[in-house]
Write a protein that binds this DNA or RNA. Structure first.
Lengths: 247, 247
DNA sequence: CGCGCTGTTGAAACTTGTCAAAGTTTGTGG
DNA sequence: CCACAAACTTTGACAAGTTTCAACAGCGCG
């Protein structure tokens, strides 16, 4: 159950941004732009915003105005049904874009919550559309980013629709590992920013099942867990576990 | 398991298309365009293609070149994992767009299979990007279509992650009903184009579970089922069933 | 007209969820 | 800086829901 403590949307310290100096530009929206195009993009991605751990970047229902590129930190997005059930739809890390779901109805359709103190770059959407009419490279890259999100979602659907508990968790750990590598961190050792309950919600499992699966992986020597600290000891073993058809 | 009978990609009879005469234009890409803009779009959406029941419109891995707008008929998309497990990621009907997942990698990431004899309009993607740089209305509408797909996927994730079998099936039937209404058909009576197995794959259930749930709904007077022919007798009842928190 | 695909139903097995209790960590306020 | 409370995690026993396996019925296509 997602706690109902008073989550407030945050106020922002406005900071000047420079994509050209950002070491995430190879993962983020500027990807593939030349320096002239990047300069144009910088006019648009003008401000940064800090979000403290536990605070909402945006809330479902709020008018959509901008996308957010994560400069540092870690987020989750979740959707809440009328009857109170909720589901984590994703975990986002630096270089990734938040807010794409809000374009369709011009209102955000999920909540974005910082899982650690974070900083995002604000990309007003109407500016982005205007600029991408002038810069085909940017236009195409933006389309690819949206499409990648669709493909990612299909992967999650596959996970939720066909995998059993341990396979889901293995897939989850391997995915995190990959994404940390892309950011220059260790593929084998990291801190989880989310609780067992949040992992469970994302994977369609109860927190107890997540906990048990972690313990099982540990017993089998696949990983070493100590609360949120994870060390993967046997990546190929996890991979085997993930796509070994049961029976 | 998805049968491995030889599915061949189809050859097409090329037909001249006119969005302005199409009675799906309010559901499809032309939405919101004025007649001048529509004329430009028609230059791009130049050809139609027939796809026979059971045939593939495209296959995972093939180079992505165009989007397809469904003019008539019914499709499913599915993803197949290395170990052979597969998952239906969606069912698409007239007026809806196929192929968005292929933009990101420039290769299709799923298979699109016609569930009945169908006809699609071909939209070469590079033309679409070029035109949408000139026509902001089209650009924005296209972005909304992609974003809507993301929101839809989140809905499916919620379904797979938090709902039990009967809730999933109720949600599925109500969703179909709504989409038929938008096309001028009855909200309460329709033919399923897909098998129980395909429904199950989409909903993350086994075909037996789908069949049992249909029978249960029938016993409870919520629907009348006769093979693929469905009559919904109690829409509010299905809705209640769908978001009534269990216990 | 029959064979194969699709759908239905039953019983048993298995996976995951539920409930409960206890241990651990984290955060806060004195 | 310590103490206490709250939040999070682990583990066990049992219950519930879904899958598996199996048998059979029905429809439709060749």
């Amino acid at each position: 159950m997602s706690e109902n403590r008073a989550l407030k949307t945050v106020n922002l310290s406005v900071i000047k941004t420079a994509c050209s100096n950002c070491n995430l530009r190879e993962l983020c929206l500027p990807l593939g732009l030349n320096s002239q195009e990047m300069a144009k993009l910088e006019e648009i991605v003008s401000t940064r915003k800090r979000v403290k751990r536990g605070d909402l970047l945006y809330r479902a229902g709020q008018p959509f105005e901008a996308l957010y590129a994560i400069r540092s930190g870690f987020f989750k997005t979740d959707v809440i049904m009328e009857d109170g059930r909720d589901q984590v739809t994703g975990f986002q890390m630096s270089g990734e874009l938040l807010g794409l779901d809000g374009i369709s109805s011009e209102n955000h359709s999920c909540n974005a919550i910082a899982l650690e103190d974070s900083e995002v770059c604000l990309i007003p959407f109407d500016y982005l559309e205007r600029l991408s009419r002038q810069v085909p490279t940017l236009q195409n890259h933006f389309h690819k980013v949206m499409s990648r999100e669709i493909v990612r979602d299909h992967g999650v659907m596959m996970l939720l629709g066909t995998m059993r508990a341990e396979e889901r968790l293995a897939a989850f750990l391997l995915n995190l590992s990959q994404r940390f590598v892309a950011r220059g961190y260790s593929p084998a050792e990291f801190y989880l920013r989310m609780t067992r309950e949040e992992i469970g919600s994302y994977l369609g499992l109860k927190l107890e099942t997540v906990s048990r699966s972690f313990s099982k992986f540990q017993e089998e020597g696949l990983i070493a867990v100590q609360q949120k600290h994870i060390r993967i000891l046997d990546i190929p073993g996890l991979k085997r576990l993930m796509n070994h058809t049961p029976v």
